[in-house]
């Protein structure tokens, strides 16, 4: 139980968001892709649960450590 905030492990641009609010995810599901140095980096959910909130939009630039998605852990 509880909530997990997935943060950006590196700075870059949000290329694609692969989850919606309410969607169930498992730890190795890719939730979004951050583009940095022209390289696509898949970001995993890391926990099992349900997506509670998505903090970013596609094409938005993020700094390292910026919150991306919150997941209520099941």
């Amino acid at each position: 139980m509880g909530e997990k905030k997935v943060t950006a492990p590196l700075p870059g641009t949000i290329l694609k968001i692969k989850v919606d609010v309410g969607q169930k995810v498992s730890p190795r599901d890719v939730i979004l892709i951050i583009e940095a140095m022209k390289m696509e980096n898949e970001i995993d959910a890391l926990v099992s649960g349900e997506v509670k909130e998505v903090y970013v939009k596609e094409r938005q630039t993020v700094k390292a450590g910026a919150p991306l998605v919150s997941i209520s852990i099941s």
């Binding site: 492990p9 590196l10 700075p11 190795r28 940095a36 980096n41 995993d44 890391l46």
Partner: peptide, 15 residues
Amino acid sequence: QNMGREANRDNFLLM
């Protein structure tokens, strides 16, 4: 970055 991730999927060495 690719080599780091290959060893550990949660490893982001790019920057």
